[in-house]
Simulated scan of single mutants.
Amino acid sequence: MKRARIIYNRTAGREAVERQLPRILERLEAYGLETSCHSTRYPGDGTEAARQAVERGFEVVVAAGGDGTIHEVVNGLAPGERRPRLGILPCGTSNDLARALRLPKDLLDACDVIGQGVVCPMDVGRVQNRYFVNVAGAGSLTEVTYKAPSRLKSAIGQLAYYAKGLEKLGTLFRPFRVRLEASDRTIEEEILLLIVANSRSIGGFHKLAPSADVSDGRLDVLVIRRGGLPDLIQLVGLVLKGEHVKDDRVLYFQTQHLDVYSEEPMQLNLDGEWGGDLSGRVEVLAGHLEVFCPEARR
């Protein structure tokens, strides 16, 4: 019998995992998974719990929560030479990675995906010694995601980001000068936003990086050039239609690595969480993790 470890955020999805935990354990054990669980207690606890699961020889680690919980768990799994398979029970605010993997929203249906045992290779992004599976971003606009309080996100979901954005409206349009070096191009100019994506759904926008795929061995780079509020409003409309990548105010390309240089520190957002300052190389580790996915995803 294989051993599985669930690492869950009890506040995610209005405590959805904790309310259904007995049924989740029963469902996974019906598939022959000897399952135990760990509730995260503080920032970074999910990473430590995942690291301990690796050391204790668990074959499966399940991240139950939102993209932030998945981010912590991946940062505990990715450094190891022997990496357990990753399962996901999505119940966060955006669930961007779960959407990219086409996972069901119902937690018990998501348990069935794990139990059925179909896995897909998943790329992992790396910035210095930090890992991400969905997005690395820099610019004042990206601060909205990790500065929205978790209690507010639990209470009003996606609206928490909009509320925080309105609060920071006066500082969202401060440009910064960067030099970006990819394998086939160099870019040096003032920009509002830099996004390095591993999946196409980011921050609830389903087509922000329309060509991205979590298993293609490439990162999708999206750059929004310097502009003001009218430009941003127009671009949001184009994003909703998936037509923004054709706009002259946007640069969009794919690469296996990107070297980033800036005249001033840029705050780094990794999967919606604060990641320090962005500098140096962003790279992809192709197929670094195996993740349970629906049969149709393969």
Score class of each variant (00 low, 15 high):
Cys293Gly: 06
Asp106Pro: 09
Gln234Ala: 14
Glu143Ala: 03
Gly137Cys: 01
Phe176Gln: 10
Val221Gln: 03
Ala78Tyr: 04
Val54Gly: 03
Gly76Asp: 09
Glu263Lys: 05
Thr142Asn: 02
Arg41Glu: 13
Val133Ala: 03
Ile156Asn: 00
Leu240Pro: 12
Val260Phe: 13
Glu263Val: 07
Tyr31Met: 02
Val284Gly: 01
Gln158Leu: 11
Ser154Glu: 14
Val118His: 11
Tyr261Ser: 15
Glu26Pro: 00
Val214Gln: 09
Gln128Trp: 02
Lys147Asp: 08
Arg85Tyr: 06
Val223Ser: 04
Leu240Ser: 07
Glu243Arg: 15
Arg99Lys: 15
Tyr8Lys: 02
Asp96Cys: 09
Ser140Ala: 14
Arg200Pro: 14
Ile187Pro: 08
Gly237Asp: 08
Gln20His: 11
Leu97Gln: 05
Glu295Trp: 02
Phe173Val: 09
Leu166Cys: 07
Glu81Gln: 05
Asp259Asn: 13
Glu26Met: 08
Ser183Cys: 10
Asn269Thr: 06
Asp123Thr: 03
Ile24Leu: 04
Leu235Pro: 02
Ala16Arg: 15
Gly92Phe: 10
Gln267Lys: 04
Leu258Met: 09
Arg297Thr: 07
Gly217Thr: 05
Arg130Asn: 06
Ile70Arg: 12
Val284Asp: 04
Leu101Trp: 07
Glu295Cys: 01
Glu295Asn: 00
Arg85Asp: 13
Arg200Tyr: 12
Ala182Ser: 15
Asn198Lys: 00
Ile7Asn: 08
Gln267Tyr: 03
Tyr131Gly: 01
Pro175Cys: 05
Ala49Thr: 11
Glu283Gln: 07
